[in-house]
Structure formats: structure tokens, C-alpha cells
């Protein structure tokens, strides 16, 4: 799992690259929270275009990032979600509280 961060203005984009499962989830979560704490963005975009696989471990990463941004009074979007990962997010119902957009493949 690789993470690339891009900051412009108050917007921080975190690109997740590779497979997001339980094996890498804790490290990914710690890194995202660390980058939020360091940059204090107003908006966090989790860009999933580089994900080749995601299971329910990814739901916990999304929810924890969301909680972290809420504590800051900021907002979070999940963008460019590939089909397989979207199916996992759909099953979880998180789109009731978080704005999620699909990747146009």
C-alpha cells in the first residue's frame, strides 16, 4: 500500500495505491491521520483511483478518516472509487454519511 499526498490551499488529496486489506489497513490509517494532523486541511479527498483491491478493512479506514476530519470541523470526500471497492462501500451503507464518487473506468 502506497500513499501519495497532495496539498493545495485547504484541500488535501490522499491517493491510495495498491491493495487495501487488513494487512496494510492499520499503517494506512495511521499515515492518513498523521497527515491530517500535520496539515490540518479543511477538505480531505481520499482518491481511490489507484486501488486494485479493497475489502471491509477499507470501510474502517474511510470511517476513521471521516471522524478525524469531523473533529477538525472539516469535510471529507471519497473520489474515483473503482468498481470492486465501490461494491464493498455500497454493501456497508457509508454513502449515507459520506460523499462517494465512482471512477469512470
Amino acid at each position: 500500500m502506497k500513499i501519495i499526498t497532495d496539498i493545495s490551499g485547504g484541500r488535501m488529496t490522499v491517493r491510495l495505491i495498491g491493495e487495501l486489506d487488513h494487512h496494510g489497513a492499520r499503517q494506512t490509517m495511521l499515515e492518513i491521520i498523521d497527515r491530517i494532523d500535520m496539515n490540518l486541511p479543511r477538505t480531505l479527498v481520499l482518491d481511490m483511483s489507484g486501488l486494485t483491491f479493497m475489502d471491509s478493512s477499507g470501510i474502517a479506514v474511510v470511517l476513521k478518516s471521516y471522524k478525524s476530519m469531523k473533529e477538525l470541523g472539516g469535510r471529507m470526500l471519497v473520489a474515483n472509487v473503482p468498481k470492486q471497492a465501490m461494491k464493498v462501500l455500497d454493501a456497508s451503507g457509508v454513502q449515507r454519511i459520506i460523499t462517494i464518487s465512482a471512477l469512470h473506468e
Partner: peptide, 15 residues
């Protein structure tokens, strides 16, 4: 705990 979503079996079921 909060590192797990509690959705494992739900996802197995729907997939």
C-alpha cells in the same frame, strides 16, 4: 474495535 467495520459477514453474504 474501531479498526474493524463489522461488515465482514455482510460482505461475504452479498458477494
Amino acid at each position: 474495535g474501531d479498526e474493524r467495520s463489522g461488515m465482514g459477514f455482510t460482505i461475504m453474504e452479498s458477494f
